[in-house]
Design a protein around this nucleic acid. Structure first.
Lengths: 210, 210
DNA sequence: ACAGCTATGTATAACTA
DNA sequence: TTAGTTATACATAGCTG
């Protein structure tokens, strides 16, 4: 949202980070204010700067929102359940994308080698590679990589949304680019929502299953 | 931020409001997530829909942020003090704008009637209107109106920002267009920060001083 | 209600003073 | 540093299915 696109990762330069913090804090609070007015909803925001200074916004006031939250553990559960529903939905979208990739690959396969593995119940990535020629292998590898990239992108997206319920993708799943949430959060069950990805694609460099 | 500019006031249409709510809620949480990552700061957001459903976001998690807030009443005071400093600054800007209007008017006055009130210590709005011709009076009234509009716009802006500390402009100060914050909030000292506006401009339709 | 789409308004990254 | 300016990316209002 500025002159250049930036990656969402911690800004290392101190003063740049400070400038970004105050601008974005103001923007966030403006948005919250607009939401509360437009939709008549109660909103509370608390932000701590790295220096430990607190900033807050609340409609009707921050204390009201905090009180209401503390008195409603049930609501928080509702919220988590809805979040999980959303994640499930996104997971289904992911599956859909994988199937599309699958389709594309099948077409390529047919064009290249006349249809290597036949039309039985097997998924394409389960095909036996031992019978493939060099070109076919190359195609196969490229398709796997493309699919892997799709999975990673989706996983990153889910990660952002996942923090809503404090669930956490194991950070190695997101590649090695700076990962800010790690230090304070537990790692847990999100993987339960993401399992049926073929084994070949689910191992990191240490061979550990995700 | 859409096809058309919209006024920030409650959306009356139920379904439109609901759509806006979910879109903006998502946007707000995305922004909060970005802020926490980019600036390494702790952020918590709680939103209640009008139906009473709760949504939250937190980094590292919402409970952490709430805990930290509850344990730091002092920080909240710091924040309020800073907010007041900002308001004072904005107030000074407002004064500056008034002076600019003043200047412009003085020039107009000189052009029109050769300089009706002389150059003593009086502000232009204190000039005696009894000696004015009809054109001069018209000009004077228009200038007052322009100045009034500037004051109202600034006041609306301050109002949005003021909710940060749960301070509240008396709603009649903002005109009669829908005013959403009124029901739950107390009215108090903000007017202390806004007094030296000439009497002519500080009365509402009941003649009650602001 | 819900999920896209796109034209448009806003927020803001990089820059300047 | 702390403010302003500007070009650009992004969020979203109104619309469609």
């Amino acid at each position: 949202m500025g002159r250049a696109k930036i990656e969402i990762k911690k800004i290392e330069n101190r003063s740049a980070r400070q400038v970004c913090f105050s601008k974005r804090r103001m923007g966030l609070i403006k948005k919250a204010s607009e939401l509360s007015i437009l939709c008549g909803s109660e909103v509370g925001i608390i932000v701590f700067s790295q220096a430990g200074k607190a900033f807050s916004f609340g409609h009707p006031c921050i204390d009201y929102v905090i009180d209401k939250t503390l008195k409603r553990p049930v609501q928080v559960n509702c919220e988590k359940i809805e979040r999980i529903r959303q994640l499930e939905k996104q997971y289904n979208e992911l599956l859909q994308e994988l199937e599309n990739e699958n389709e594309k690959h099948a077409i390529l396969q047919r064009e290249f080698a006349g249809g290597g593995g036949g039309g039985r119940g097997l998924q394409w990535w389960e095909e036996d590679v031992s019978g493939m020629g060099i070109e076919e292998l190359k195609q196969h590898a490229e398709s796997l990589e493309a699919m892997y990239r799709v999975v990673i992108e989706r996983a990153k997206f889910l990660q952002v949304q996942a923090s809503l319920v404090s669930y956490q993708l194991p950070s190695h799943f997101l590649g090695d680019d700076n990962f800010q949430h790690e230090q304070d959060q537990e790692k847990h069950q999100l993987s339960l929502l993401l399992p049926p990805i073929p084994d070949d694609l689910c191992e990191n460099e240490n061979g550990k299953r995700v």
